[in-house]
Design a protein around this nucleic acid. Structure first.
Length: 231
DNA sequence: GCGACAG
DNA sequence: ATCTTGTCGC
C-alpha cells in the first residue's frame, strides 16, 4: 500500500509523494453534519528542537455571546524531525499533528488547519495532506501566501478575491478583519472553496483568524488565554 | 540566472 | 516558526 506519509523523507522523495497524493484530493463537498470543528496548529519551543502540536475541538453551533464552547483540547510535544522547507511543511508538522489527533476522544466532522490547502505549488499543502491522512474534510487558513497571485482585497470584512496559480483558482484571499492583512483560505480535502469560505467566515470572531485556528495557535505557542472584554 | 518562499 | 520592548487603542 502507498504510504500517505513518511516520517522523514528526503526532499526529492517528499516531492514525489506529493505528486502522487495530490490527485486524491477531493475538491467537492463530502461532509457529515457538522457538530464539532477542530483547529490545528504547530508551534516550536526555544531553539526549535521541540515541536508542539495543538488540537482544539469546538462545539457547533456555539453560543455567539460567549464564543464557541471548547469541547476538548490536546497538546503533543515531540522532538522536531525536519527543518522548514517551503513547500514541504507538511512533512515537518504532520507527525506531531497526528499524534495529537490520536489523543482525541472526539472525532470532528470538519478540521481547520493553520497553513495552505491546495494553494500549494503541487496542490498538496499541509491542510490537504492532513485531510487525506485523517480522511476528514479540511480547510487551510494561512496567514500569508505561499504561491499564486491576486488583486487587491476589498476593505470590507468578509470580502475576498480569488488566488490564482498557473491559470487555476487555488484559493481565496479573505478580509477577515477590517484594517488587517487578509488570510489565505483554500480547500484542504472533501470540501469546496465556496463552502470553505462559508465556514471560515462563520467561525470568525472579532479577530483575524477564525476561532478554531486562533485557539489552536494560542495553545501551540503556549500563550495563555486572552482576557475577554467585560460585558 | 534571479528572486520568492505556508510555518 | 521563534526572539523580543515598547507603543497605540478600546
Amino acid at each position: 500500500m502507498t504510504p500517505l506519509h513518511e516520517w522523514t523523507p528526503t526532499p526529492e522523495k517528499a516531492i514525489a509523494l506529493q505528486r502522487e497524493l495530490a490527485p486524491r484530493i477531493e475538491r467537492e463537498d463530502r461532509l457529515a453534519p457538522v457538530r464539532h470543528i477542530a483547529g490545528v496548529d504547530i508551534g516550536f519551543e526555544q531553539s526549535g528542537e521541540i515541536t508542539r502540536a495543538a488540537v482544539v475541538v469546538l462545539a457547533w453551533p456555539g453560543d455567539p455571546r460567549v464564543g464557541f464552547e471548547v469541547v476538548e483540547q490536546v497538546v503533543h510535544r515531540e522532538p522536531t524531525r525536519m527543518p522548514y522547507l517551503p513547500g514541504l511543511l507538511s512533512f515537518r508538522e504532520i507527525p506531531a499533528a497526528l499524534a495529537a489527533f490520536d489523543q482525541l476522544a472526539t472525532r470532528p466532522e470538519l478540521v481547520m488547519v493553520d497553513g495552505q490547502g491546495i494553494a500549494h505549488p503541487r496542490r498538496l499543502g499541509v491542510a490537504s495532506h492532513l485531510g487525506l491522512w485523517l480522511d476528514l474534510p479540511t480547510i487551510g487558513v494561512a496567514k500569508s501566501r505561499l504561491c499564486g497571485v491576486h488583486d487587491e482585497v476589498p476593505e470590507a470584512r468578509g470580502e475576498w478575491t480569488p488566488l490564482r496559480h498557473r491559470g487555476e483558482t487555488i484559493g481565496a484571499v479573505l478580509r477577515s478583519r477590517v484594517g488587517v492583512k487578509p488570510v489565505f483560505v483554500s480547500l484542504g480535502h472533501r470540501i469546496s472553496l465556496a463552502t470553505s469560505l462559508d465556514w471560515v467566515v462563520q467561525c470568525l470572531g472579532r479577530t483575524k483568524l477564525p476561532e478554531p485556528t486562533r485557539l489552536a495557535d494560542r495553545l501551540a505557542s503556549r500563550r495563555g488565554p486572552m482576557p475577554r472584554p467585560a460585558d
